[in-house]
Write a protein that binds this DNA or RNA. Sequence first.
DNA 1: GCAAATTAATGATTTATTCAAG
DNA 2: CTTGAATAAATCATTAATTTGC
Lengths: 193, 193
Amino acid sequence: MSRAGSSRWCPTPQQLMMLEEMYRSGITNPNSTQIQHITSQLSLYGKIEGKNVFYWFQNHKARHRQKLRKKLTRQLQHHHQLLHYFDSPAAFRHHSYYNSGSPLLFPQAGIHHEAAKHSMNCTWKFNIPERTDKNKGMMRTYGSDWLMMVDVGPPLSSPPCYSMICRPPLKTLELFPLSASDLKEDTNINKDS
Amino acid sequence: MSRAGSSRWCPTPQQLMMLEEMYRSGITNPNSTQIQHITSQLSLYGKIEGKNVFYWFQNHKARHRQKLRKKLTRQLQHHHQLLHYFDSPAAFRHHSYYNSGSPLLFPQAGIHHEAAKHSMNCTWKFNIPERTDKNKGMMRTYGSDWLMMVDVGPPLSSPPCYSMICRPPLKTLELFPLSASDLKEDTNINKDS
DNA sequence: GCAAATTAATGATTTATTCAAG
DNA sequence: CTTGAATAAATCATTAATTTGC
């Protein structure tokens, strides 16, 4: 992985681990400042650009929620089957019906905050911008400031050139301010399925 | 319009005219290089940033197609009514049924290329990037190179600061290379309605 | 005429879908 | 089949048109 003339970014295991750790820690929709810092941190472990980070979080969030949705619908179907089951005559109810489904109803439910706590002893830090103008909006990459992401040119041309961040003023704030992304995620899931 | 402390961009009539002219000329999905040039051109007529241009084309394209879709479905309904009409007994068919609908079935059909021809005598020019890597992809703003769009800070702070383009090397190529966006648009329309 | 109230347009974000590399 | 990349659709939010009662 991380080949020279590859047409698309291929994350190194280190990078992937750190990205997943960040995601579990609550960073699901980093804004441009966050992306800049994540990028510069991860560039220590291999070639990476801001847009790779951007796309990774976008895809990971979408596919994570997709997975949750599927699991949820399976659960609902299961419930439905259970309802039918209990509607059926008692004579047919003597085989074990419960061992077929997934082991736990909502396996993800209580995990996030645990992970968030444990993730504090991670080695990297990155910056969190001050609360956005209206403190509800949590602007995304397109928000009031945009990323400068320059391609290192046509592939193969410049091997040691890590993507550089354009805006220098990077003051370090505290870690993991994200508050309640799980709830928001759940409501979103309930909204559209 | 174009007020000082406005939270969102408000295009001047000049800017709007030029954007619409570009759109009619076939620029429906400008890549970052095009956006940069369009932005710098339009900044002569008022405050504007690259992301405004980006969003404008995105929205305009979407809403234009939406309008076409609606028109199309209306036309289909009309056809449907006509079919019913011709299915009805001849005795009921003596009023003029054709004057109710829109005057032409596909008013947009043959216009684009005419407009493209006439638009050549427009006063502004802008650059077209070399054919993208794979010459089919027609990459968007996120494509191989990204825009540098810095906000001029919190509104009201910096009135005369037009958005500046980051990347200087702007070699001018020829005008309006777009080939057949209408067809593509039509197929897209047929795809999802 | 002219504000307050509603509605329509449209700029800005977010989410879903699709394409394609490996 | 997974997943990075790109596009399109849906949605939110703010501004301009406009209607309405005075």
